[in-house]
Design a binder for these strands. Structure first.
Lengths: 68, 68
DNA sequence: TATTTTTGTAAAATATACTTGACATATCGG
DNA sequence: CCGATATGTCAAGTATATTTTACAAAAATA
Protein backbone atom coordinates (compact mmCIF):
# COMPACT_ATOMS: atom_id res chain seq x y z
CA UNK A 1 0.00 0.00 0.00
CA UNK A 2 1.06 3.56 -0.67
CA UNK A 3 1.88 6.13 1.98
CA UNK A 4 -0.89 8.62 2.67
CA UNK A 5 0.98 11.86 2.19
CA UNK A 6 -2.22 13.84 1.78
CA UNK A 7 -3.18 12.91 5.31
CA UNK A 8 0.28 13.77 6.59
CA UNK A 9 0.10 17.15 4.86
CA UNK A 10 -3.41 17.93 6.12
CA UNK A 11 -2.38 17.04 9.67
CA UNK A 12 0.70 19.25 9.41
CA UNK A 13 -1.49 22.03 8.05
CA UNK A 14 -3.45 21.92 11.28
CA UNK A 15 -0.27 21.81 13.36
CA UNK A 16 -1.28 18.52 14.94
CA UNK A 17 1.02 15.69 16.02
CA UNK A 18 0.05 12.10 15.30
CA UNK A 19 -0.69 11.83 19.00
CA UNK A 20 -3.01 14.84 18.98
CA UNK A 21 -4.90 13.69 15.90
CA UNK A 22 -5.21 10.23 17.43
CA UNK A 23 -6.82 11.71 20.53
CA UNK A 24 -9.17 13.84 18.45
CA UNK A 25 -10.47 10.84 16.54
CA UNK A 26 -10.28 8.35 19.40
CA UNK A 27 -7.66 5.88 18.22
CA UNK A 28 -4.10 5.11 19.23
CA UNK A 29 -1.09 7.00 17.95
CA UNK A 30 0.20 3.83 16.31
CA UNK A 31 -2.97 3.58 14.26
CA UNK A 32 -2.51 7.06 12.81
CA UNK A 33 1.13 6.30 12.16
CA UNK A 34 0.27 3.05 10.37
CA UNK A 35 -2.33 4.77 8.19
CA UNK A 36 0.12 7.49 7.16
CA UNK A 37 2.75 4.87 6.43
CA UNK A 38 0.21 2.91 4.40
CA UNK A 39 0.51 -0.18 6.56
CA UNK A 40 -3.16 -0.95 6.76
CA UNK A 41 -6.57 0.05 5.56
CA UNK A 42 -8.61 1.97 8.07
CA UNK A 43 -12.36 1.51 8.29
CA UNK A 44 -14.59 4.08 6.63
CA UNK A 45 -15.78 5.21 10.05
CA UNK A 46 -12.26 6.10 11.10
CA UNK A 47 -11.60 7.80 7.77
CA UNK A 48 -14.67 9.97 8.28
CA UNK A 49 -13.57 10.87 11.81
CA UNK A 50 -10.14 11.87 10.52
CA UNK A 51 -11.65 13.98 7.76
CA UNK A 52 -13.94 15.79 10.19
CA UNK A 53 -11.03 16.48 12.52
CA UNK A 54 -9.06 17.98 9.65
CA UNK A 55 -11.89 19.82 7.93
CA UNK A 56 -11.70 17.75 4.77
CA UNK A 57 -13.82 15.12 3.05
CA UNK A 58 -13.14 11.53 2.04
CA UNK A 59 -12.23 12.45 -1.50
CA UNK A 60 -9.62 14.90 -0.25
CA UNK A 61 -7.65 12.40 1.80
CA UNK A 62 -8.67 8.88 0.81
CA UNK A 63 -9.60 8.88 -2.84
CA UNK A 64 -7.13 7.89 -5.52
CA UNK A 65 -8.06 8.32 -9.14
CA UNK A 66 -5.78 5.56 -10.41
CA UNK A 67 -5.50 2.43 -8.37
CA UNK A 68 -5.28 -1.27 -9.07
CA UNK B 1 -25.38 2.66 12.05
CA UNK B 2 -27.59 3.96 9.26
CA UNK B 3 -28.55 2.08 6.14
CA UNK B 4 -26.57 3.00 3.06
CA UNK B 5 -29.37 3.84 0.66
CA UNK B 6 -27.05 5.77 -1.62
CA UNK B 7 -25.14 2.58 -2.28
CA UNK B 8 -28.35 0.64 -2.81
CA UNK B 9 -29.55 3.26 -5.29
CA UNK B 10 -26.25 3.41 -7.18
CA UNK B 11 -26.19 -0.36 -7.46
CA UNK B 12 -29.77 -0.41 -8.73
CA UNK B 13 -28.84 2.32 -11.20
CA UNK B 14 -26.31 -0.06 -12.71
CA UNK B 15 -28.80 -2.94 -12.71
CA UNK B 16 -26.58 -5.05 -10.52
CA UNK B 17 -27.65 -7.54 -7.87
CA UNK B 18 -25.82 -7.69 -4.54
CA UNK B 19 -24.28 -10.88 -5.81
CA UNK B 20 -23.02 -9.28 -9.01
CA UNK B 21 -21.56 -6.27 -7.24
CA UNK B 22 -19.92 -8.58 -4.73
CA UNK B 23 -18.22 -10.48 -7.54
CA UNK B 24 -17.10 -7.25 -9.21
CA UNK B 25 -15.37 -6.04 -6.06
CA UNK B 26 -14.23 -9.43 -4.82
CA UNK B 27 -16.17 -9.89 -1.59
CA UNK B 28 -19.05 -12.08 -0.53
CA UNK B 29 -22.68 -11.24 -1.16
CA UNK B 30 -23.29 -11.06 2.59
CA UNK B 31 -20.66 -8.35 2.91
CA UNK B 32 -22.45 -6.14 0.39
CA UNK B 33 -25.74 -6.87 2.09
CA UNK B 34 -24.34 -5.96 5.51
CA UNK B 35 -22.90 -2.70 4.20
CA UNK B 36 -26.21 -1.68 2.63
CA UNK B 37 -28.02 -2.60 5.82
CA UNK B 38 -25.53 -0.57 7.82
CA UNK B 39 -24.43 -3.53 9.89
CA UNK B 40 -20.75 -2.86 9.78
CA UNK B 41 -18.09 -0.47 8.62
CA UNK B 42 -16.25 -1.57 5.52
CA UNK B 43 -12.57 -0.79 5.06
CA UNK B 44 -11.61 2.15 2.88
CA UNK B 45 -10.13 -0.23 0.35
CA UNK B 46 -13.45 -1.98 -0.13
CA UNK B 47 -15.26 1.35 -0.30
CA UNK B 48 -12.94 2.46 -3.08
CA UNK B 49 -13.51 -0.79 -4.98
CA UNK B 50 -17.27 -0.37 -4.70
CA UNK B 51 -17.06 3.23 -5.90
CA UNK B 52 -14.98 2.27 -8.90
CA UNK B 53 -17.39 -0.52 -9.79
CA UNK B 54 -20.27 1.93 -9.68
CA UNK B 55 -18.56 4.90 -11.30
CA UNK B 56 -18.79 7.09 -8.21
CA UNK B 57 -16.38 8.50 -5.64
CA UNK B 58 -16.15 8.12 -1.87
CA UNK B 59 -18.02 11.32 -1.19
CA UNK B 60 -20.92 10.15 -3.33
CA UNK B 61 -21.57 6.95 -1.42
CA UNK B 62 -19.77 7.07 1.92
CA UNK B 63 -19.67 10.66 3.10
CA UNK B 64 -22.23 12.00 5.53
CA UNK B 65 -22.31 15.67 6.30
CA UNK B 66 -23.83 15.27 9.75
CA UNK B 67 -22.68 12.39 11.88
CA UNK B 68 -21.99 11.82 15.53
C1' DT C 1 -49.29 -20.84 -10.26
C1' DA C 2 -44.65 -22.59 -10.63
C1' DT C 3 -39.88 -21.40 -11.04
C1' DT C 4 -35.96 -18.65 -10.55
C1' DT C 5 -33.55 -14.87 -8.76
C1' DT C 6 -32.72 -11.75 -5.12
C1' DT C 7 -32.51 -10.51 -0.58
C1' DG C 8 -32.36 -11.19 4.54
C1' DT C 9 -30.29 -13.52 8.21
C1' DA C 10 -27.58 -16.58 11.38
C1' DA C 11 -23.68 -19.23 13.33
C1' DA C 12 -18.88 -20.63 13.24
C1' DA C 13 -14.39 -19.80 11.46
C1' DT C 14 -10.63 -16.77 9.66
C1' DA C 15 -8.24 -12.42 8.53
C1' DT C 16 -7.00 -8.21 9.88
C1' DA C 17 -7.88 -3.51 12.10
C1' DC C 18 -6.69 -1.61 16.30
C1' DT C 19 -4.75 -1.47 21.28
C1' DT C 20 -1.36 -1.56 24.78
C1' DG C 21 3.19 -1.24 26.34
C1' DA C 22 7.69 -0.67 25.37
C1' DC C 23 11.96 0.94 23.29
C1' DA C 24 14.90 3.58 19.85
C1' DT C 25 15.84 7.53 17.15
C1' DA C 26 15.26 12.04 15.51
C1' DT C 27 14.30 16.74 16.20
C1' DC C 28 13.83 21.06 18.38
C1' DG C 29 13.96 24.64 22.10
C1' DG C 30 16.20 25.88 26.35
C1' DC D 1 24.57 19.73 25.53
C1' DC D 2 20.11 18.39 27.75
C1' DG D 3 15.28 17.54 28.34
C1' DA D 4 10.98 17.29 25.97
C1' DT D 5 8.26 16.17 22.10
C1' DA D 6 7.48 13.61 17.72
C1' DT D 7 8.01 9.74 14.98
C1' DG D 8 9.07 4.81 13.77
C1' DT D 9 8.61 0.11 15.00
C1' DC D 10 7.71 -4.42 17.25
C1' DA D 11 5.26 -8.06 19.71
C1' DA D 12 1.17 -9.87 21.95
C1' DG D 13 -3.47 -9.30 22.73
C1' DT D 14 -8.49 -7.84 21.64
C1' DA D 15 -12.20 -6.34 18.60
C1' DT D 16 -14.37 -6.68 14.52
C1' DA D 17 -14.54 -7.08 9.27
C1' DT D 18 -15.25 -10.76 6.14
C1' DT D 19 -16.00 -15.71 4.65
C1' DT D 20 -18.39 -19.94 4.31
C1' DT D 21 -22.39 -22.68 4.60
C1' DA D 22 -27.00 -22.84 4.97
C1' DC D 23 -31.93 -21.79 5.11
C1' DA D 24 -36.14 -18.91 4.49
C1' DA D 25 -38.78 -15.40 2.48
C1' DA D 26 -39.62 -11.78 -0.97
C1' DA D 27 -39.78 -10.43 -5.59
C1' DA D 28 -39.39 -10.99 -10.38
C1' DT D 29 -40.49 -13.75 -14.42
C1' DA D 30 -42.27 -17.45 -17.26
Amino acid sequence: MAKNLKLKAARAGHDLSQQELAELVGVSRQTINAIEKGEYNPTIKLCRAICRALGTTLNDLFWEENEE
